[in-house]
Simulated scan of single mutants.
Amino acid sequence: MTRAHLPGIIAMAAIVVASNILVQFLFGNWLTWGAFTYPLAFLVTDIMNRVYGAQAARRVVFTGFIVGIICSLIGTQIMGEYGPLVTLRIAIGSGIAFLTAQLLDVSIFSALRGGTWWRAPLASTLIGSTVDTALFFSIAFSASLSFIEPANDVSWAGEVLPILGFGPQAPLWVSLAIADWGVKLSLALLALVPFRLITGRMTAAQ
């Protein structure tokens, strides 16, 4: 790690901490405020990858993973209205989803880095975000994985309702996942602007 990597490491740590806090606050029926900060982790990873390479990006990812573990451990000790703020399933789902999706993002970005400037960040973020959403929500809330933490009652997440209030019937957690995924995809497109500006300035300054 070099001093030049510190801004990326600090940014990733700040995003992970902020997202762990903001996920406690609802935004509408299907989202939390954390849904709007967490996708920025992909932007940080992609900027580091473009400017400093895959190895530096992986260092930033592992920093975010460690910070996430610390946040989860703290969350398990804080009691909310319905129990600990962070359950074992949420902690496992969050850790696996983050590490898998971010490392996948780094690999895809590296494979596409020689193409048009927007191709690598867009493809890596879209695929990484999809994997992240699928892993987290299925591990944390799917009834088929209840054996991970039998004592944790997540039956509320399995309540069958119209998807997003108007679609076909599905467990509630599916609506939560689709809404979260939609935010990630939207921010992946919007993030191309700061990605282009920031990487351009950082590259010029080297």
Rank of each mutant, 00 (worst) to 15 (best):
M1Y: 04
T2N: 15
R3N: 13
R3A: 14
L6H: 01
P7C: 11
I9D: 13
A11I: 03
A11C: 03
A13E: 03
A14M: 12
V17R: 04
I21Q: 07
L22K: 14
L26H: 13
G28T: 06
W30F: 15
W30D: 12
L31K: 02
T32P: 09
W33E: 03
W33R: 03
A35S: 14
A35H: 04
F36D: 07
T37N: 04
T37A: 13
Y38A: 03
P39T: 05
L40Q: 09
F42Q: 07
F42M: 03
F42R: 00
F42I: 05
V44I: 15
D46K: 00
I47G: 07
M48K: 00
R50D: 15
R50L: 01
V51C: 04
Y52I: 00
G53Y: 12
A54W: 12
Q55V: 11
R58K: 15
R58V: 10
R58W: 02
T63P: 04
I70E: 00
I70M: 13
C71Y: 06
L73D: 06
I74T: 08
I74E: 00
T76K: 09
Q77R: 12
G80W: 04
G83N: 08
G83R: 12
P84W: 12
P84T: 03
T87V: 10
T87M: 11
A91V: 11
G93S: 02
A97P: 04
L99W: 06
T100Q: 04
T100H: 03
A101T: 03
L103I: 03
V106L: 07
S107R: 12
I108E: 11
F109Q: 06
F109W: 02
S110R: 10
S110C: 00
L112N: 00
G114P: 03
W118V: 02
A120K: 12
S124C: 01
I127F: 04
G128N: 06
G128Y: 06
G128H: 05
S129A: 15
D132Q: 03
D132A: 07
T133I: 12
L135F: 06
F137Q: 02
I139W: 09
A140C: 07
F141W: 09
S144W: 13
L145M: 10
L145K: 05
I148F: 12
A151P: 07
N152I: 05
N152H: 09
N152Y: 10
D153R: 09
D153E: 03
W156M: 10
A157F: 08
G158A: 15
E159M: 10
E159Q: 13
L161Y: 09
I163L: 14
G165C: 10
F166E: 01
P168N: 07
P171T: 06
P171Y: 09
L172R: 13
L172D: 00
V174G: 00
L176I: 10
L176H: 10
A177H: 06
A177L: 01
W181P: 09
G182N: 12
K184A: 13
K184M: 04
L185D: 02
L187M: 15
L187S: 05
L187G: 07
A188G: 11
P194L: 02
P194T: 08
L197E: 11
I198P: 05
I198V: 15
R201K: 15
R201L: 14
T203L: 15
Q206H: 13
Q206F: 06
Q206Y: 04
